[in-house]
């Protein structure tokens, strides 16, 4: 009796069997991986702002504390973008003829806001609160990166839920003394043991016990 099917159908069957499982798995993984790439998370994307504000100059060179401009970071959910009048508080005196600050002066005198582009944009169903993180010893650098070295601010971390939850589950690695929260230069101890010991101590001292229940961030 001759074969019912030609020999090549064996290969076809094997390929089909593998594909039947493999293609959906690969396709699904691709989508899920894509979601985690900077292409979707906007990580490392430098946005062109209406005014080329340079944090290197303000923070690194001039040593202005983050909280001078982002003043409500310790009291509110949002760190806040300074009012135009705060910018003009200095720039009425310094660089007051600079052409690069022309949009600022225009905004100030016409009383229209500067339309800054949002760099760190969480979805609307996520409720992040700056004040509690700062109060518990999570540094600005931890989430925002070395803003003092950024000519144009970009999103340094992925800001995915995985990334948030990793820290909420084990925050010790990310804590720093409260007086170093806005310190861009602060370095954690290099040795792992010392780092862990410091993390434990800070978590205890500042009563850090983050929650991971859904309602922590989703309301």
């Amino acid at each position: 009796m001759s074969a019912l099917f030609p020999r090549w159908t064996n290969t076809f069957a094997r390929v089909a069997a593998v594909s039947a499982v493999g293609v959906p798995v690969v396709a699904l993984s691709a989508v899920m991986l894509l979601q985690r790439t900077p292409y979707v998370t906007n990580q490392h994307v430098e946005l062109v702002q209406p005014i080329q504000f340079d944090h290197r100059h303000h923070n690194w060179e001039e040593g202005i504390d983050c909280r001078f401009c982002h003043a409500q970071v310790e009291t509110s959910a949002t760190a806040g973008i300074p009012a135009t009048s705060l910018c003009m508080g200095c720039h009425a005196q310094v660089f007051n003829k600079s052409p690069r600050l022309e949009p600022l002066r225009q905004a100030y005198f016409s009383k229209t806001p500067v339309a800054w582009k949002r760099v760190h944009d969480l979805p609307d169903f996520v409720y992040f609160n700056h004040s509690i993180h700062v109060r518990k010893g999570v540094g600005c650098v931890t989430c925002h990166g070395r803003v003092d070295r950024m000519p144009m601010v970009y999103q340094a971390e992925p800001l995915t839920m995985q990334w948030c939850v990793d820290c909420h589950r084990a925050p010790q690695q990310h804590l720093r003394p409260l007086d170093a929260v806005t310190d861009m230069q602060w370095q954690a101890p290099v040795s792992a043991a010392q780092r862990a010991e410091l993390g434990q101590r800070l978590a205890q001292a500042n009563d850090v016990h983050p929650r991971t229940a859904c309602d922590t961030c989703h309301r």
Binding site: Q72, S76, T78, G80, A83, S85, T112, P113, D121
Partner: peptide, 22 residues
């Protein structure tokens, strides 16, 4: 589409006693 870009419009002069978000 990709996530739409968003703008932040700061106050001209921050109102007294108001903290955005509170």
């Amino acid at each position: 589409t990709m996530k739409p870009s968003d703008t932040i419009l700061p106050y001209h002069q921050a109102p007294e006693g108001l903290t955005i978000g509170n």
